Simulated assay, not measured.
Amino acid sequence: MSLTFELDPAVSPALRDEVLALWADVSNTGGSVGFVPPVTVDDIRPELVRHLVAMAEGRTRLLVGRDATGAVAATAFLTLNTHPLMSHWVWLYTVMVHPRYQGRGYGRDLLAAAADAARTLDGIEAIRLTCRGGTGLERFYGSCGYKEVGRVPDAIRVAPGDDREDITMLLPLV
């Protein structure tokens, strides 16, 4: 079974709720997507609203991966740069695969779909993302073609006394 990806799906209440549930499930199993467990959909909702506003303003694009039943199994947000000197690359945010699908290659599929989506955007030459140190994500992203281009020590405070590096990764598309 593989996922079917769609860029810029219509955001219905059902899709919104599926993304919220995915985000909570990923967060509550230790995923590095902006929250630490325990978290509820109500905790996440304000952040999703910020993403949806950016989508409505044309600054962010949503990529959704659906399983064979049509349920949301993976997402990522591609955000355009508004700075004129950086408009040739996009940010990739909130990269998530539902925990029940992890280990099946869907993360690689999601990143490949994100790269394909970015290539359709006018003038985009690279994707940039950040990840939390101490999770091994930089190895995963590296195996998908991303190169580490920077680290900021102690930039992410997961809990008092648990500060992590903020690792920046870049994927050239050209």
Score class of each variant (00 low, 15 high):
residue 93 Y to Q: 14
residue 108 R to I: 04
residue 102 Q to G: 02
residue 76 A to G: 15
residue 88 H to A: 09
residue 80 L to W: 06
residue 118 A to S: 08
residue 117 A to N: 01
residue 101 Y to R: 09
residue 100 R to K: 11
residue 84 P to T: 12
residue 113 A to I: 05
residue 87 S to A: 10
residue 112 A to L: 14
residue 121 L to K: 08
residue 102 Q to F: 00
residue 116 D to Y: 08
residue 102 Q to N: 04
residue 81 N to G: 02
residue 81 N to A: 06
residue 114 A to I: 05
residue 84 P to E: 09
residue 84 P to H: 07
residue 97 V to A: 03
residue 82 T to Q: 10
residue 77 F to D: 06
residue 105 G to R: 00
residue 101 Y to F: 15
residue 96 M to S: 03
residue 113 A to K: 06
residue 96 M to I: 08
residue 97 V to P: 02
residue 78 L to T: 04
residue 78 L to H: 00
residue 78 L to A: 00
residue 103 G to T: 04
residue 92 L to S: 12
residue 86 M to Y: 11
residue 92 L to I: 13
residue 120 T to E: 11
residue 112 A to M: 14
residue 79 T to H: 05
residue 93 Y to D: 15
residue 97 V to D: 02
residue 89 W to Q: 07
residue 120 T to K: 15
residue 77 F to Q: 13
residue 111 L to D: 03
residue 113 A to G: 03
residue 98 H to Y: 01
residue 103 G to F: 01
residue 103 G to N: 04
residue 125 E to M: 10
residue 116 D to S: 13
residue 96 M to A: 12
residue 116 D to W: 10
residue 98 H to G: 06
residue 122 D to E: 13
residue 91 W to Q: 15
residue 122 D to T: 14
residue 92 L to Y: 00
residue 109 D to F: 12
residue 87 S to F: 09
residue 105 G to F: 01
residue 90 V to Q: 11
residue 112 A to P: 07
residue 112 A to E: 15
residue 100 R to I: 05
residue 103 G to E: 02
residue 79 T to M: 12
residue 79 T to F: 03
residue 109 D to K: 11
residue 101 Y to I: 08
residue 78 L to W: 01
residue 76 A to D: 03
residue 77 F to C: 10
residue 97 V to N: 01
residue 75 T to M: 14
residue 116 D to E: 15
residue 107 G to H: 02
residue 92 L to E: 07
residue 113 A to M: 12
residue 106 Y to I: 12
residue 109 D to L: 13
residue 80 L to E: 08
residue 103 G to S: 05
residue 111 L to T: 12
residue 85 L to N: 10
residue 107 G to D: 02
residue 90 V to P: 00
residue 79 T to K: 12
residue 84 P to N: 08
residue 123 G to V: 08
residue 108 R to F: 09
residue 100 R to E: 10
residue 125 E to W: 11
residue 121 L to H: 10
residue 88 H to Y: 06
residue 107 G to C: 01
residue 125 E to T: 12
residue 110 L to S: 00
residue 107 G to W: 02
residue 75 T to H: 08
residue 108 R to D: 07
residue 124 I to W: 01
residue 95 V to T: 06
residue 115 A to R: 03
